[in-house]
Every structure is written in structure tokens, then in C-alpha cells.
Design a protein around this nucleic acid. Structure first.
Length: 756
DNA sequence: TAAGCCGCGTTTTTT
DNA sequence: ACGCGGCTTA
């Protein structure tokens, strides 16, 4: 095993210490992936473990794929037989195999977030609830967090604790919605993302024989990015390794950035309790970055209170200081970044692939993208609107999904009147309600439509059913590509797209072709045995754009910091370093959240190997408005000795003072003209601007808040506290603002300053 | 049922 | 800015 000689002491421990529970705390750049790969290789080669008995769980498909490739380069093609993938994909696979035990068909549909939200929207409407109170996002995240803590709807609706919480939050119907949502998913033979984990827990809880089978199959369990697991995920891995106890988790609490998704740092503490003879290994030497970068990162993360003890150090060179680039606008920021890349490529022989531009939100990519394009620098954007989220793709996928699972309500709603066949929302609602009230599957209602919906619409439905039946025959007898192209043609989707000769229309047509190409590729892959559409569709909801192969490789990478986790680049630009953008305004409510933002900052810094840039702009477009920005507090949090101000890009431009429509005269009566006039005539709106970051706006102040106090809110201005609700952890205050009237503010979120 | 107009909200990250 | 949903009208 010559590769073992390249490891340092703790790394070596992490590789060869294969028996019993192990926790590897791995600092950024400490060779974590290396340890994981070698550990698996070691298991296979030295311990003779069958790859079939090794389960390795990651959070992104990309990470899984990368690791598989790295292992393959050590142990060869046998690596293909490893159980390796994201939690969601691995357990979706197991759930399909065991679906019958839970009362699902094995071809159940996986609802993506859009499906979930639109289902919630429908339910809220059906129950006549206020959709401003019960916003799909809010409802879904409440349901999601319940599921991630393994709280079923049955428990949620009977346990008064949750009811009390929801009452305080003025959302008393939440439990009812959770129930209705769950029943509707079940009825549609569908699981959402959280169900994949929740139902795996149910499966292992209620079917000990099944649990037993997988406990023995997975003799070794490895979990990457352990700090990002939620309770639901943790319990699955704990159960699976209960017999053999061979569980290895690898993580870094300093890089936990998915608390918003239910990730629970407590898991690290619980792990020590649940596996008392745990072996803890710390990887603290950073091989990735320069001294300067490592030190800067340490100076940032040191500000967080709750971190495990760990000292990340490096033996690498000092390297350059972080360069701070100031610009006047988001567009200028883009230009500066582009010209710096251009220059560095020329002077220091870097290639495009040596650069990454990281930002907090996907929407920030626009200005950067424009600048790169103008400079002729090849780039690739990760994330954003996924290929699979585009309307035309979702439409075709809707047909494919429905042909496979004809009880899938969301697909049904999407395609039933597409192209138009004279079936409106009224008929659709009647059908869905009929299925629910008679407690029969949707498809059964559709195939017997005459007894439920007499009249004109019934004929149209019957035609639709005949069409779908003909598709189902294809699904049963032909391969995925033949089926999909048949459906694309005969559904009328392709024809409709083809008729659209606008640029967007052509794009959409091409996108559909691209999907068909992907299916063709799937069918032509020799290793794929089952070439049915059914098989192709299995995990498609779990795929994201990031998982597609990229043709061009020498490109600058643009991505959010979240997607950059686990990656490294020689040169990294962290752009949009502005207060309220990064750290995000949304996150500024409590200290716990600020600490998560800080960890995110830490992740961003530690992606860089050689050179790091911070960039901020003094103004930025958002919602079509030019907003004033201030430098992020994070810039000041870095020990100043590691930063220098870049003077090359001293701004020559004037900061734009107002939004000036630089287009041709708008058509009279057009939406644009209307908005323009509306904006001009709008009340003397104060220019919407980011408020100054001020210690006066911290949550600590508001704990002293009392009725009758005069307060200031960064957005609503001055007001008087009318009423306080202090129930549970959700403290709320009703405030009457001078210019905005009465608002109820959740105090843990509100930025209030007590005036007097 | 379809088309057209109007008004509203956007909250950040991913499986 | 932009898209979506709701509402009105043909």
C-alpha cells in the first residue's frame, strides 16, 4: 500500500482504523477526502471487504461521483459496486426496493420542492385559508422541519406543544395542513425530499427484518460532511451501524452551513454519547492554502463561540495578502474581477480553471457573467435555475411522470390542459376532490370519469385518458428513448414548441431536445441493464444541474459559497461582500444565525489555495432598484494584517445616483410605461437603502422592550409598541408605526432599536 | 375557456 | 425587474 506512506499521522489513523466507531474532525484542506477514499480503498484491498458491504454517504451527487472516481483510480473498476451516493439517492433506492412494505408502489414519484409548494398552495386554497398567512414556503419549511425531526403528522396534530407554537405564530391550521399534505402525497404515490429520509426511518422502525438485512449488508458505513446531517439522517446511519458498529463520520463543525435545512450540530455531541468507545481523530494540518489564508480564516472562525477545539495550521508558504477590491456598482465589480482574471492569466500563467468567483446568492451571478462575457473569458455557472426546473422540461417530465405514475396529482395538474384541451381549473378541482372524497386513486376517477363528471369536459378527459393509456403501452414495452420521444411528439408538446419561433421559443425547443438526448445517452450506456423509462425516471428528481457533465473544462467557476463546499481553487474571489447581503439580511436575526453566516464565510475563504480577493460594491441592483450598500462587517472581522487594499482598481466612476431608464422610449400603455409612471408618481418614497449596520439593532436590546416604548425599525421607521406577546420562545410585539401602521413583529427576527 | 390587465411579492443557501 | 396569480372581460 504505497499510498499510505504519503499520509501524516492522524490521516493514517483515519485510514487504517477501520473497526469500531470513528469520528474524524477534519479541518478545511486537511485531506479529508483523501482519508475517506484511502479508507475505502484500504477496506477493499487490505481487509478484503466486498464493495457491496460498504455504504458511503455524501450530501451532493457531485461529491459522491468525485469520490467514486478517486477510489476507482486506486482500486480499479471494482469501485463501481460500492454503495455510494447522497442520503436521498441511496435511500430512495432502498425505499423503491421495499416500497410495498410501506404501502407505496415501487415506482412512486419524488416530488421536488416546486411540486411540494404547489400542492400546499392548492390545499391552502381548498381549505379557504389565507395564502398570505399560510405561504407555501413557510408551511413547507415547518412541515419539513417536523419531518426532519421525525415528527409525524399524527404526532404533530395530537401533541399540544406544536399546536401552541403554531397558535403563537398565528398559524393554528399548520397541523391540519401537515396532515392534508401528507395524505395527498401518499394518495399521489409520491414522496417529497424529506419523506425519503422520514420513510426510511419508518421502514427501519417497523420492519426489523428489513433493518436486519441492511445492517448486515452494510458492514461499514461512512458519512461525509457529518456536520450537515439532520436528526433523521443521523438516526438512519445510527441504526444501520448498530450491529457492526463500524461507522466512520467525517466532518468539520466549522463548516456547518446547512442548519437552515435541519442540519443539527447536536449530532456530533450525540454521536459521542451513542457510541461511547468512539475513536476521535483530528486532522489539523492544512495542505491546501497559504499561511496567510489559513491565518485569515482562523481569525474569522475564532469569533464564533460554539466551536470544537481544533487548531488548523499549515506548513505552506506565507503567500500573498488578501486583496480588497472596492467598486462603485455591481457592474463595475464585475469588470474589475474580469480584468483581474485577465491580468493574472497573462502575468502568472494561470488558466481559467484556476479561478472561482463565489457569491452569497445566485442572483449575483448576472453582473459578473456579463463582464466575463465581454472580456471573452470562458466561465461556467453552477446552480441557479436548474435545467430540470425549466418550464418546458417540467412539462415533458410531467407527461413522463404521469405515464409512469398516473396518480401523481402534481403532474396531472401540469399536463391535463397542456396543450389546451378545454379542461379548466374547475374540472380539475372536481376530479381531485372526487378522488379524495371517494378515497380512490386519481387514475381510477379518470378512467371512470363519466360517473363523476358528466358533461362536456368528460369527453375531453376520455380523450386524455386514451392518450395516456397509449403512452403507458410504450412505457411497458419500449425503451426510455423511444417512449420519451413518442410522448414528446404525440402529446403535442413538441409541436407547440416548434411553432414558437421566438428566440426563447427556439431555446425551449432545444432544451427539450437536450432532455431527449440525455435519455438517448442513458439508453446507449452499455452498463445500464434496465433501459426502461421507469428506470431513467427513478432518481431524476434528485439530480441537479450541477450533476451534468460539463463539456468545456478550462473555465472560470461561478457558484454560491454553499455549492463550493468541498472544492478548492488557486484563486478565489468572494464578491458582494456587503452588509445585509453577506452576511445575509435574513440571517441577521439571532447570533446563532450570524455564526452560521460566519462559518459560510470561513468556508469561502478556505476554498482558496494561493490568492484570495474580497470585493464589494457601493451600490447594487435588486428588484430593479439601485440600492446603497456598505462594506460587510466580515471584512473587518479578518485580522487586518492579512488584507491589503487593492489600489489598481480605484474607482473612477461616479456612483450612480438614480435609476435611469436607458432604453428606447417605452410603448405607450406597455407594462413598462405603466410601471415607470407608477414609480414616478409614487408617494415620496424614501430611497430604499440598506440601513446602517449598528449595534443598536441587536436582539439583546429588545429583550427589554415594553409596551408603550418608542422604537425605530430600519425599514418601517419610528413607531410605538402597542402590545407584547411573550409566549414560549416566540416573542412578538405589535408595533404601530407612524408611516406604515400596525405591524406584528417576531422579535427574534425584528431589528428594533429602542428610542425611548 | 382564453386572453388581457393589474397588483403584489421577491426574502438565501440544496437534496 | 419580473413572474405569477387573481380578476375582468369577450
Amino acid at each position: 500500500m504505497d499510498y499510505l506512506s504519503s499520509l501524516n499521522e492522524p490521516q493514517y489513523e483515519g485510514v487504517v482504523n477501520t473497526e469500531g466507531p470513528t469520528m474524524i474532525i477534519a479541518g478545511a484542506g486537511s485531506g479529508k477526502t483523501r482519508v475517506l477514499t484511502y479508507r475505502i480503498a484500504y477496506l477493499m484491498q487490505e481487509k478484503g471487504v466486498d464493495p457491496f458491504n460498504i455504504l458511503s454517504l455524501t450530501f451532493t451527487n457531485k461529491a459522491a461521483k468525485e469520490m467514486r472516481e478517486r477510489i476507482e483510480s486506486v482500486v480499479g473498476s471494482n469501485a463501481r459496486n460500492l454503495w455510494m451516493g447522497t442520503f436521498h439517492s441511496v435511500f430512495a433506492r432502498i425505499l423503491r426496493a421495499e416500497a410495498g412494505k410501506l404501502g407505496y408502489p415501487s415506482n412512486f414519484t419524488i416530488y421536488d420542492t416546486d411540486d411540494s409548494k404547489s400542492l400546499i398552495r392548492n390545499i391552502v386554497k381548498e381549505y379557504g385559508l389565507d395564502d398570505k398567512v399560510y405561504k407555501p414556503n413557510t408551511v413547507l419549511s415547518r412541515i419539513s422541519s417536523a419531518k426532519n425531526r421525525l415528527i409525524s403528522w399524527q404526532e404533530y396534530t395530537t401533541n399540544p406543544i406544536y399546536k401552541a407554537d403554531d397558535d403563537t405564530a398565528m398559524k393554528p391550521e399548520m397541523g391540519m395542513l401537515y396532515k392534508a399534505y401528507s395524505l395527498r402525497c401518499k394518495k399521489a404515490d409520491a414522496m417529497d425530499f424529506d419523506d425519503l429520509l422520514f420513510n426510511t426511518n419508518v421502514l427501519f422502525r417497523d420492519h426489523l427484518d428489513v433493518l436486519n438485512k441492511y445492517q448486515h449488508r452494510f458492514r461499514y458505513v461512512l458519512v461525509d460532511e457529518f456536520q450537515d446531517t439532520n436528526v433523521s439522517q443521523y438516526l438512519i446511519t445510527k441504526k444501520l451501524s448498530a450491529v457492526n458498529q463500524n461507522i466512520a463520520v467525517v466532518g468539520d463543525d466549522a463548516q456547518s452551513i446547512y442548519a437552515f435545512r435541519g442540519a443539527d450540530i447536536e449530532n456530533i455531541l450525540n454521536f459521542e454519547k451513542d457510541f461511547p468507545d468512539l475513536k476521535v481523530i483530528k486532522l489539523e494540518q492544512n495542505y491546501r492554502s497559504t499561511q496567510n489564508i489559513v491565518n485569515a480564516a482562523n481569525s474569522v472562525i475564532g469569533r464564533n463561540k460554539g466551536q470544537l477545539k481544533k487548531t488548523v495550521w499549515t506548513a505552506n508558504n506565507d503567500g500573498n495578502q488578501i486583496e480588497l477590491i472596492k467598486s462603485v456598482s455591481d457592474n463595475e465589480e464585475g469588470r474589475f474581477v474580469a480584468s483581474e482574471i485577465f491580468e493574472q492569466k497573462a502575468n502568472r500563467n494561470y488558466k481559467n480553471e484556476d479561478f472561482a468567483i463565489l457569491y452569497r446568492t445566485n442572483s449575483q451571478s448576472r453582473s459578473i457573467e456579463e463582464a466575463l462575457r465581454k472580456s471573452g473569458i470562458a466561465y461556467r455557472i453552477y446552480g441557479g435555475l436548474s435545467f430540470y426546473q425549466r418550464k418546458e422540461i417540467k412539462d415533458l417530465m410531467g407527461y413522463l411522470r404521469f405515464a409512469i405514475n398516473s396518480n401523481d396529482e402534481q403532474s396531472f395538474r401540469r399536463i391535463i390542459n397542456l396543450p389546451k384541451r378545454g379542461i379548466g381549473p374547475t374540472s380539475v378541482e372536481k376530479i381531485v376532490v372526487a378522488a379524495f372524497e371517494h378515497d380512490i386513486p386519481l387514475w381510477e376517477v379518470l378512467t371512470n370519469i363519466n360517473s363523476f363528471l358528466p358533461g362536456r369536459a368528460a369527453n375531453a378527459i376520455n380523450d386524455f385518458v386514451t392518450l395516456i393509456k397509449s403512452f403507458k403501452i410504450y412505457v411497458e414495452t419500449k425503451d426510455a428513448f423511444e417512449t420519451a420521444s413518442h410522448i414528446a411528439k404525440n402529446s403535442g408538446l413538441l409541436k407547440e414548441l416548434y411553432a414558437d419561433k421566438t428566440i426563447e421559443g427556439l431555446n425551449r425547443y432545444e432544451n427539450v431536445q437536450e432532455l431527449l438526448n440525455a435519455i438517448k445517452e442513458f439508453v446507449d450506456t452499455p452498463e445500464v441493464e434496465d433501459k426502461s423509462l421507469n428506470n431513467f425516471m427513478q432518481d431524476i428528481a434528485l439530480l441537479t444541474d450541477n450533476d451534468k457533465e460539463n463539456e468545456e473544462t478550462d473555465v472560470v467557476t461561478l457558484m454560491t459559497i454553499h455549492s463550493a463546499k468541498g472544492l478548492e481553487f488557486k484563486n478565489v474571489f468572494i464578491v458582494g461582500m456587503e452588509e445585509d447581503l453577506f452576511p445575509s439580511q435574513m440571517m441577521m436575526s439571532s447570533r446563532a444565525d450570524l455564526e452560521e453566516e460566519r462559518r459560510l464565510f470561513y468556508v469561502a475563504i478556505t476554498r482558496a489555495k494561493e490568492n484570495l480577493y474580497f470585493s464589494y460594491a457601493l451600490s447594487r441592483y435588486r428588484y430593479g432598484r439601485l440600492l446603497n450598500c456598505e462594506p460587510s462587517r466580515f471584512i473587518e472581522e479578518v485580522d487586518p494584517s492579512y488584507i491589503r487594499v487593492n489600489t489598481k482598481y480605484g474607482s473612477r466612476e461616479q456612483k450612480p445616483s438614480s435609476l435611469s431608464p436607458s432604453r428606447n422610449a417605452p410603448e405607450v400603455g406597455s407594462n413598462y410605461a405603466r410601471n415607470l409612471i407608477a414609480n414616478r408618481n409614487a408617494a415620496p418614497k424614501k430611497p430604499m437603502s440598506y440601513h446602517k449596520p449598528s449595534d443598536n439593532f441587536t436582539p439583546s436590546d429588545i429583550s427589554n422592550l415594553k409596551e408603550g416604548m418608542k422604537v425605530e425599525h430600519p425599514k418601517f421607521g419610528f413607531g410605538k409598541v402597542h402590545k407584547m406577546d411573550v409566549e414560549g420562545s416566540n416573542k412578538k410585539a405589535k408595533v404601530i408605526f407612524e408611516s406604515f401602521g400596525e405591524k406584528t413583529l417576531l422579535l427574534s427576527f425584528a431589528k428594533l432599536r429602542i428610542v425611548e
